[in-house]
Amino acid sequence: MNIFRLAGDMTHLISVLVLLLKIYATKSCSGISLKTQELYAIVFVTRYLDLFTDFISLYNTVMKLVFIGSSLAIVWCMRYHRVVRRSYDRELDTFRYWILLGVSFILALVLHEKFTLQEVFWAFSIYLEAVAILPQLVLLQRSGNVDNLAGQYVFFLGAYRAFYILNWIYRYLTEQRFTRWISCVSGLVQTALYADFFYYYFISWKNNAKLQLPA
């Protein structure tokens, strides 16, 4: 464990807590893409198949349970909570995410570390996570200026993977045989997708204006 990875995990945890806070406090999920939340639930379930077979550390197990639990709780809330579900932007959240699922799965069948069920699903979850934010970015684009909690959620989510890239560089420099090409390349693509959002987020923060994304 290094400081970059810890910062990344904490930032990731903050992004989930910000989202849960927004939904719980305001009983509203306007501006949040259910499709992105469902993709994240699939990412965590398919990535943590080793939850009960591999014990790495208490921290690792607890964080896995938190990520799986919170992502499923958010999806449940947005789908079935009688108050929250009314504020879901159903007509704006129309990203055809089956494409993302299909492409990620096919890519995982071709590119993986070992051809075992667990490794193919692990690679699938890595590829899927890189593109899972797309429905949310499209929704932010369509709904124009975002309310700041939705913007903060995306900001922390992007920052977490940027910290992980620093972690991979650090591990590559300090551990001889550290190679995680699948994670590194996918993580770079993921962070790049946030780049334009970060730009507009910084501009709005600098001008102390509401976040305006070009339609």
């Binding site: 990875r5 995990d9 990731h12 080793d50 077979t53 591999d54 014990f55 790495i56 550390s57 690792n60 964080m63 896995k64 990520f67 570390e113 070992k114 667990q118 490794e119 692990w122 992980y164 972690n167 995680r180 994670s183």
Partner: peptide
């Protein structure tokens, strides 16, 4: 300690 399948990251 990295796990059996080497994935010790979240």
């Amino acid at each position: 300690s990295s796990s059996i399948n080497g994935h010790d990251e979240l």
